[in-house]
Nucleic acid binder design. Structure first.
Lengths: 154, 154
DNA sequence: CAGTTCACGATATAGCGTATCGTTCATGGC
DNA sequence: GCCATGAACGATACGCTATATCGTGAACTG
């Protein structure tokens, strides 16, 4: 992510928090920035390490987890359950409504793409689930894929 | 799972291994049995504990992991990535071909149902993914839901 | 400016998983 | 039957992920 877009996204995140009456502190901003700048999802401990390199001060893992919890509650960050890693929401600076996030995770390079699946497909899926007697609560799907580059290389 | 079905399923699993030239040892049988008898998915360490209670002998966590790896390779067991737990395949004793497993996980009681999603939906999903420049490799989906009972109770 | 709430630090601990090396046991060729 | 081979398993150590708890300090509010 280039500098201009990074700045714009961070500003948008700050605005988002102000609207929600929550605090977008320096540390929270730093963690979000690290995730925005990373090509791949990061674990909490990786974030702590990167924090040290990028900002010259250490941060306890506990704080990273707390900050991640906060950022997830604000839907600025998503957790990838299958990898125990975290990724910045790709739609912070977008205007359109935040959809249910779906993730394509490249198995080789770990690159993650957050996509909006056709709502009709999700609806069909939800239908099948209802028929099985269940009720969908958090339709976040994590799909393990190969990205174009890794697919071509194999 | 009742005794008759349990026995039949274990026999089917043994047959499956014989056909594949692999060994269905006592310990592997025990682990599979524990998973078949459990209402909820279990972690490796939970399995080790249950093993002790059920069979009166301790088993190291390492062995549990190795046995789980084996059972997964034989598609007798599936791992739920989002929960780091394991569940017996519900189709061991079925005649029909083993499909790509999709899991409905009840967020409240942890009960898991393994369902076959309409292939056309999966195909549509794969289509969307292709359009995003990715290639689906392991279309295992884990959906967080509420089961009928927990849904009614809420 | 006093009180409350929120953010953060420090420490401890639990749970999940892998690495490595050694030992035992089953199996097949002789 | 006997031994060589490889598979299964045990023991120990370690690293990563996450939560619990308690304390401190900063920020907002009346």
């Amino acid at each position: 992510m280039n500098k201009a877009k990074l700045k714009k996204t961070l500003n948008r995140a700050e605005e988002h928090c102000r609207e929600h009456g929550t605090r977008f502190t320096e540390k929270r901003k730093h963690i979000l920035q690290l995730l925005l700048q990373s090509e791949v999802p990061l674990s909490a401990y990786e974030l702590a390490t990167h924090y040290q390199s990028a900002f010259g001060e250490t941060i306890p893992a506990m704080s990273v987890y707390r900050i991640l919890d906060f950022l997830m509650a604000e839907t600025l960050v998503h957790k990838l359950n299958s990898a125990n890693k975290y990724t910045a929401c790709e739609h912070i600076a977008c205007d359109h409504q935040h959809e249910v996030p779906q993730f394509l995770i490249c198995e080789r390079c770990q690159n993650v793409k957050e996509v909006g699946i056709e709502p009709s497909i999700i609806a069909a899926l939800a239908d099948e689930i209802e028929r099985a007697g269940y009720h969908l609560t958090q339709p976040q799907i994590e799909l393990h894929c190969l990205c174009e580059r890794c697919f071509s290389a194999s």
